[in-house]
Computed example of a mutant assay.
Amino acid sequence: MRLPRLATAALVAAAALTLGGCLLPSPPERPVERTAPRAPTTPSGAAAPEVVPVEPDAPVTSGDTTASDTGELYAGEAGETSDGFLPDAAVDVVLPPTAGTPVVRPGIALPVHEDGDELLPGTAHEGSGNLLLTTSGRLELSAGGAEYTCSGTVINSESGLIVLTAAHCIFDDDTRDWYDRISFAPAYERGEAPFGTWVAEEWWVPEQYLEANDRWLDGADDDGWMGFDFGFIRFAPQDGATLEDAVGGQGVSFTAETNGVVIAGYPGNDPFDSEVLRHCAEDRLDYGAGGDANYGADCEMGDGASGSAFVSNLDPTTGAGHITAVFSNGGATGAYGPPLGVTAWNGLRSIDG
Rank of each mutant, 00 (worst) to 15 (best):
N156A: 14
N329D: 11
E147G: 11
G260A: 06
Y266H: 07
M301T: 14
P96Y: 00
H113G: 05
T18S: 13
P27F: 01
A187Y: 01
L23T: 08
E207M: 09
Y188E: 04
T135P: 02
G145C: 08
I233V: 10
P43A: 03
T61Y: 14
G288E: 07
C150N: 00
E300R: 15
G302E: 09
P106S: 03
P111L: 04
T242N: 03
L243W: 01
A236E: 09
V60L: 05
G251V: 10
D223F: 11
F310K: 00
L131M: 09
L19K: 03
S306W: 00
D270N: 15
S44I: 11
T197I: 10
S142P: 12
A212E: 12
S62H: 12
F232S: 04
A241M: 08
S159L: 05
V104P: 02
S136A: 14
D223H: 11
F310D: 04
P27A: 04
Y266T: 06
E77G: 07
N130L: 13
L17T: 13
G347D: 01
R234C: 03
D180Q: 11
P338N: 13
V276F: 11
S128L: 06
Y336G: 01
S274F: 06
G337L: 02
G307Q: 01
G191K: 03
H125V: 11
T343E: 03
L139Q: 01
A36E: 14
T175D: 07
P106T: 07
P43C: 04
G331S: 05
I155S: 02
S26A: 15
G71P: 08
D286R: 12
I263C: 05
A89S: 15
T317N: 09
A46Y: 09
A47H: 05
I162M: 06
T149G: 08
A124K: 06
D115V: 14
A212N: 12
D57K: 15
V91W: 02
F171L: 14
A7Y: 13
E201S: 08
C169P: 01
L73G: 06
F272P: 03
I351Y: 02
S68L: 14
D115K: 14
T35D: 13
E189H: 13
Y179T: 07
A124S: 12
T18D: 06
G219A: 08
G191S: 05
F171M: 11
D283F: 12
N213G: 07
T41L: 15
A325D: 06
Y148F: 15
S350P: 08
Q208G: 06
D352C: 08
S26I: 15
L314W: 09
P4W: 02
R284K: 14
H279N: 13
P96K: 00
L285P: 00
A193Q: 12
L141E: 13
G127C: 09
T258K: 07
A109D: 02
A7K: 03
G265M: 06
G296W: 00
R34K: 10
P96L: 07
G107D: 10
A293V: 07
Y295E: 00
